[in-house]
Design a protein around this nucleic acid. Structure first.
Lengths: 228, 228
DNA sequence: TATCCTAATATTGTTTACAATTTAGGTTTT
DNA sequence: AAAACCTAAATTGTAAACAATATTAGGATA
């Protein structure tokens, strides 16, 4: 059991990440250093380090001598993210088909079964499905055993995906279909068929993208105006 | 003309990046904050911010209360990087085929012509080819117009690739072949054939990987021992 | 001789204070 | 009245001091 040794900067960073993702700090909002430091009960030093991390994750943008603002979510950027996810998660699925241990494969299947049960119980309208979906993808990414890939996806990109889902209320409206696609991917991985797993994963993400993009466009664009 | 406004942290960060890539700071080496600050003539505040950036690019690893060390290059990690590059640059090529302006396409072709001339001039043994290769890939990535993709590749990953090339002296030993492959990719992009461009790019990177990996294995592993 | 404990040293994490730049408001000028 | 300029407040960038943790060296003990 490793000591949960950490630093103020990391802790506060995580807290701010959470605030940004859930919308407690709205998009485009200016981040005031003394104020933020006071809120979190630390001084500006660690806070600035935390902000450096946020900048690295691209949750905020900083301009010298001016300050930091939370990124603004846009249709364009979400599209960019999904293009990258399709590519990288396709790779992850391919690698996972070769690299996942028998145990991991079994657990992945068990996860899907619990999802299936949950969807049946809630008759399709599955709030849980949201985080469940992240969970499924998360496991496959880790199954790739490519540490850099894991960091790229699970570290930064998924945060953004969660952010969009939160703020645009984009929980899946097609849980059954998504589950079916997850099933197919899982089967391909179980059989060690990397090529197929990759192809299925790319199609799966492509479907999800089309679904989300369509709903984002129809959704009334009640964008908040400038915050000071 | 925009002011080149910047901050000490950024400047020093870039200088340290250069030192790490060129090997002036050897892999696995411990980074001492007061010493580094003194060397670069700044105080520890900005230096620590610079180190946060380095950590985000994964050029160093930090452990709380212990310190930072330069990453160690390994066969495994290079493999990981190339797997990711194959995937992401394939995507970049596909997108570039659609998104590149006519001007950009012309300039890309001009770049290749200058490479060809250079290879002929130097009769195949082309040191320049090294940076030229980066340049070619760099332009295609930017041609994708996917800002996040650009940041991921041009921002962090290429630094690593350059680092490996420097420290393992892995300049291309097949410039003619590489140029031919670049030519094919360029043609596909000119014709707007994204699918083909993607396929060619993936094969190109796969070839480069096999070439480099093979040479890395044969190369005597004269790894430096621990530095204190 | 090797191991463990302890104290001294060095290094990192954090806070506070200072300097430089930007922003906002009001006055002046055209 | 509108625009430009100047002044003051606020905010960011930087530096120096302080606190906490880890490392190292020395000595005592088995």
């Amino acid at each position: 059991m490793q000591e949960e040794i950490t630093t103020l900067a990391k802790q506060v960073c995580e807290r701010i990440v959470k605030d940004i993702i859930t919308g407690a700090i709205t998009q485009g909002q200016k981040l005031n250093e003394p104020e933020l430091a006071r809120i979190h009960g630390i001084s500006r030093g660690p806070l600035r380090e935390a902000m450096s991390r946020l900048e690295a994750m691209r949750l905020i943008t900083r301009t010298p001598n001016v300050g930091a603002r939370v990124v603004k979510l846009s249709y364009q950027e979400l599209l960019e993210i999904y293009q990258i996810r399709e590519s990288l998660e396709g790779l992850a699925a391919k690698l996972a088909a070769q690299a996942m241990s028998a145990d991991e494969k079994v657990n992945l299947r068990l996860l899907l079964n619990s999802h299936r049960k949950h969807i049946l119980d809630t008759k399709g309208q599955s709030y849980f499905q949201q985080e469940g979906d992240v969970d499924f993808h998360y496991r496959i990414v880790h199954g790739s055993k490519n540490q850099r890939l894991i960091d790229m996806l699970a570290g930064d990109l998924y945060q953004l995906v969660r952010m969009y889902r939160y703020q645009f209320s984009l929980s899946s409206n097609r849980p059954q279909q998504a589950l079916k696609e997850h099933d197919q991917i899982c089967s391909a991985i179980e059989e060690g068929d990397g090529e197929l797993a990759e192809w299925l994963m790319k199609r799966h993400i492509n479907n999800a993208r089309n679904n989300i993009m369509q709903r984002m466009q129809t959704q009334s664009n009640t964008q908040d105006e400038e915050n000071r």
